[in-house]
Design a protein around this nucleic acid. Structure first.
Lengths: 352, 352
DNA sequence: TAAATTTATGCAAACGTTTGCGCAAGCTGT
DNA sequence: ACAGCTTGCGCAAACGTTTGCATAAATTTA
């Protein structure tokens, strides 16, 4: 019946609050608030302000952001939703965003969807519940329920890397069409004709644009990709690239001259699969990637790819978010950042 | 180009709150709270509960986490402090943490210190201000003001990868001493005698243990590292590795047989620097890393290194945090996870 | 059938800020 | 000296929950 005596738990140290500072300096706590609130000017005499500030720092006062948020309806926190932080494209974006938002006092809440569309919507709801001031969505699908939900809730949204079909979402993207068309053109001009392609789900604008870029370049040269030279991956990982490449190599008796991969990780998987099949890269088969993630210059062979300015895109997205936060009625704008061709050793020149 | 559906002065949509649901279902809002609060059992009749739930979902009610946090003094959010998310060791840790904390409703706030100790303390303060329920510190120094601050504030802390000098901090670490000693022993047993080492700042337990591991193995074989075979890096990046290696190669007329690097990124930089100097790896010089980050099996030459179970460490850290959150009086425990030697092509066997 | 107990709900006080409003002083100008 | 202004600060009401306590109704017990 008798309860065991409650253990002498050292409670979470009592935080000093406004009223503590107030009584210690002999003023009302609203005065303390006015003194300490950044960007509050005038209205309080200098000597009082100074005294309050002294007491506050002596007592080690730190504002309670939760209480402040409840009152001001702004949490100074923003969400970043990605497929999987383990994909090396995302950390530089996070860095970029942080570098512009953090100085303004924003904290970043990251969420991984694991490529799930339900998880994505769930994350938006959870972040909305936490009253984030805005959301960066890097998983934007051409038709995306998460985007609709944000609009419905009135949460400022900036789409990163990708864009919706309507194009009505504020977004900072890489120019994937341009990049992939340029890369494909280079490949064709190096003499390749039997071209295989590994593409990603076409409900992502990045995947769609890259595939369209390939097709545009090939059309321009009177070429096209036959069905047996086309493979699909569900997500961006080396394993998926390996699997798709094996399917590709098994689909026809003779292997293609080159495999254009939607992304570097896929390309690395492709290199692995080719080696497994005894094919030398690029002697027997050429391979290209996209993104130019770190280490692509160090692998064997060094990967020819398209360099995306990820950090710059992150910074631009952060700046765009700041704009929308200060002016919610701004019309949606899309910024496209041009990538750069990076030619290394994984592509053979058949002309020589 | 059509214009976006411009809604008139689209304010942030008014959130439906408890009292809305209450008046719509004809009960007091406290009743609604009791019905909706997860884990509240009994006390409310089934028909009322059902009606309230129906109204709530019809109105799309989502609790205001900020208000809830203010009342309950718990934000269900935790902080993760790292040096730099661009270092590939951190994303798997984040994944691991998220995989165990997210199902319990915790959100993760990430902060990058950029290797700054002031930034670290600042991050702790900012997170404390936001009332995070706990902090994962992956930047723990042997003597760390941030750790002290957390203790002082009573914020549950789990140190990840590293440990303080006292060892009194809850922590999940890799057994760096064991790993580096094993690797070094292997290197010595492969016939290497002229061994160079690139180490990191010794105020980090990881760096310290690895260096001690090297020394222990060498002592056991009657060897030691002369001053001109020792180089230092300030942070973990390829550039730093390249710089340190160049210093190493310039410090003596004859190059060492092997360079043991504190970390994979440093090793990659070392490979680059050696190539720059016209040295072939591993024919002319051997190189080893530590961590086994992704792609280390694909670079040229494939890197011999020590594999850390990063995701597993993240999960263990998450579980430990959950324990401390539910029982703050638990004594500090340190969990060490054993790594694995991964031998690939970057290490030459001088015995054959 | 009254008393005692249980059950289901309402009431109102927190949680720690921010901020509009009001009111004393102190000042200015006539 | 007095009306009007300005300045500096206190007062108290929010913000949207959670939760101890009170209470009315329903049920059981004596």
């Amino acid at each position: 019946m008798s309860n065991p005596p409650k253990s002498v738990s050292e409670k979470r140290a009592r935080r000093v609050k406004l009223s503590d500072v107030a009584s210690a300096s002999g003023v009302h706590y609203s005065t303390v608030s006015r003194v300490l609130r950044p960007g509050f000017k005038g209205r309080i005499s200098d000597d009082v302000a100074e005294r309050v500030r002294a007491v506050a720092s002596e007592l080690g006062y730190q504002p309670n952001a939760v209480a402040s948020s409840l009152r001001t309806q702004s949490t100074r926190s923003i969400g970043l939703i990605v497929h999987d932080m383990n994909d090396p494209v995302y950390p530089p974006i996070l860095s970029g965003i942080e570098s512009v938002m953090s100085p303004d006092g924003y904290a970043v809440l990251v969420g991984n969807t694991g490529y799930g569309v339900d998880a994505e919507l769930d994350l938006v709801n959870r972040m909305a519940s936490r009253l984030v001031d805005g959301i960066f969505l890097a998983t934007t699908r051409l038709k995306d329920p998460a985007v609709e939900r944000c609009e419905q809730l009135g949460i400022p949204l900036v789409s990163v890397l990708r864009q919706t079909a309507s194009g009505h979402t504020p977004a900072v993207m890489n120019d994937c069409f341009w990049g992939m068309e340029a890369l494909t053109t280079h490949i064709i001009e190096s003499g390749h004709r039997d071209i295989a392609v590994i593409i990603a789900p076409q409900d992502l604008s990045t995947a769609q644009e890259r595939w369209q870029g390939v097709q545009a370049a090939m059309n321009k040269h009177g070429l096209s990709v036959p069905k047996h030279r086309l493979a699909h991956v569900d997500r961006m990982s080396m394993d998926e690239g390996e699997r798709a490449t094996k399917a590709l190599l098994a689909a026809a008796p003779v292997s293609p001259e080159v495999i254009i991969c939607v992304n570097d990780l896929i390309a690395v998987g492709a290199i692995r699969a080719c080696r497994d099949r005894g094919l030398r890269v690029p002697t027997d088969i050429s391979i290209s990637g996209y993104n130019d993630i770190p280490l692509m210059d160090m692998i064997d062979p060094p990967l020819s790819t398209v360099h995306i300015h990820l950090r710059q895109i992150g910074k631009a997205a952060g700046e765009m978010m700041l704009e929308y936060l200060s002016n919610p009625d701004l019309p949606a704008q899309t910024k496209r950042v041009k990538p750069e061709l990076v030619l290394r050793g994984s592509l053979r020149d058949l002309k020589r």
